[in-house]
Structures are given as structure tokens and as C-alpha cells.
Amino acid sequence: MSNSASLLMDNLFDLKVFVDVVETGSFTHSAERLGISRSAVGKCVARLENRIQIRLLHRTTRSLRLSDEGQTVYEGALKILHEVANIENELSQGQQQPKGLLRITAPVIFGRLYIMPIVKEYVRR
């Protein structure tokens, strides 16, 4: 996978983590749900905030709330992730019989969460 493709996958994963943090209302709950460390969740959100140079979440020891810009990013991220899921569904419906050589390069966390389940199903078939 090229660097730009790897960066795109990292960006999508960061969006996924951000959406999960917003929906769970907690870095800890999001980490548990996604099967990654709390630190990894924090790094994903920080990377996203650094990339767009905007504070997305207002955090205190007791609360977590979206900034106005965070709400905009959250709504956009939901649309993007929904579209990615739709594309995956369309493509998977068109190919009922897996075949051919499969090579995958992905970040470890993304690979464990998203790629391995697909590869296991591929191998099973």
C-alpha cells in the first residue's frame, strides 16, 4: 500500500475512533469497545485535531463535549463512514466467490479491528 493509501486508512481510522468517542462519551468506553488502549484512542483524536488544527472536544476530568467545529466534523465523519460501509457492501455483494492472491498492508490496530475478520472469512471460504 502506498504512503498516501496508508495515510488515508489512518485518517479513516481516526475518524472512526472520534465518532466512537462522541457516541460513547468516553475515551475509556471507546477504547474498550474498539479493543484498543485508552492511549491509542487519545492519540487518534489528537492526530485528527492536529491535522485540521481545530479543537474538536472540550474535555474535563468529568465530562466530554463537542465543540461547534467538533459537531460539524462528527456529522461529516458519520456520512463518510456510512459511505465507506455502503461501498464495501456493494462490492461484497458483487463477489460471492473469493479468489486470487490477497496482499494487505495496514496499520496494526486497523488490521486487527477491520482487516483480520475479513481475512478470516476469506480463508474460511
Rank of each mutant, 00 (worst) to 15 (best):
H82Y: 06
S30W: 14
M1K: 04
N50D: 15
T61H: 14
D68E: 13
R51Q: 05
R124G: 03
L8C: 06
R103L: 14
A77C: 09
I54W: 06
I104S: 02
G25W: 02
E75T: 13
A106V: 12
D14H: 01
L56H: 02
E88I: 03
S63W: 09
R103M: 12
R38P: 02
S2M: 10
F27M: 14
V73Q: 10
L12A: 00
V21H: 12
L113A: 04
R103S: 07
L78P: 00
L101S: 00
H29N: 13
T28G: 11
H82G: 04
L15N: 01
S2E: 07
A40D: 07
G25H: 09
A5M: 08
V22S: 00
G70W: 12
S39C: 04
S4M: 08
K43L: 07
I118D: 12
Y74D: 05
P98T: 00
F13R: 07
E88G: 04
I104A: 02
E32Q: 08
I52W: 06
Q93I: 13
R47T: 03
I36H: 11
E83Y: 05
C44D: 02
T60C: 03
H29D: 14
C44L: 01
E83D: 14
V22K: 11
K120I: 14
S92C: 05
V84Q: 01
E75I: 04
L15V: 04
T24R: 13
V123I: 15
R62T: 08
G42N: 09
M1F: 08
A31C: 12
V19S: 04
S63P: 03
N89K: 11
Q71Y: 09
P98C: 05
S37V: 07
L8P: 06
R112Y: 06
K43P: 00
T72D: 11
K99A: 14
R38S: 11
A31F: 03
G111R: 12
A40T: 10
H58L: 06
L91S: 08
L48S: 02
M1L: 11
Y122N: 15
G76V: 08
I115A: 10
H82K: 10
I36Y: 08
P98M: 10
A77M: 01
S39G: 12
P107F: 10
N86Q: 15
H29A: 06
N89L: 10
T60G: 00
G94D: 13
R65P: 00
G25V: 01
D20Q: 13
A46V: 06
F110D: 00
K120R: 15
R65K: 14
R55W: 00
G94Q: 05
